[in-house]
């Protein structure tokens, strides 16, 4: 989780990833951030994230993003 938060903060500095629960719904991160985050994640974890997974529910909390990575890892 720390590694993930580190990556997230490098893409979007100043966002409280540890505590925010509605990153996408509240507009704290936008579609550009999501694409940047996803490409960083794919690079850092060596996984392929599906375009069908680019939905707000998967990006609202750091936990859901981690779950997405774990799902992609198989």
């Amino acid at each position: 989780m720390e590694k993930l938060i580190g990556i997230l903060k490098s893409v979007c500095p100043g966002v409280d990833f540890e505590n925010e629960k509605a990153l996408c719904d509240d507009g704290i991160i936008n579609s550009l951030d999501i694409v940047l985050i996803v490409s960083e994640l794919m690079d850092a974890y060596g996984v392929e994230i599906d375009i069908d997974d680019l939905v707000p529910e998967n990006f609202n909390t750091a936990e859901s993003i981690l779950a997405l990575v774990e799902k992609a890892q198989g």
Partner: peptide, 30 residues
């Protein structure tokens, strides 16, 4: 979203990350 996920854009991303580097390198494809 579909555009940034294509192989072409992935390759552009890898290229700029390697040769330009830093934040700039990461955000060029987007």
């Amino acid at each position: 979203y579909p555009l940034t996920f294509t192989k072409l854009f992935n390759r552009i991303g890898k290229f700029t990350r390697k040769h330009v580097g830093g934040t700039l390198g990461r955000i060029i494809p987007t």
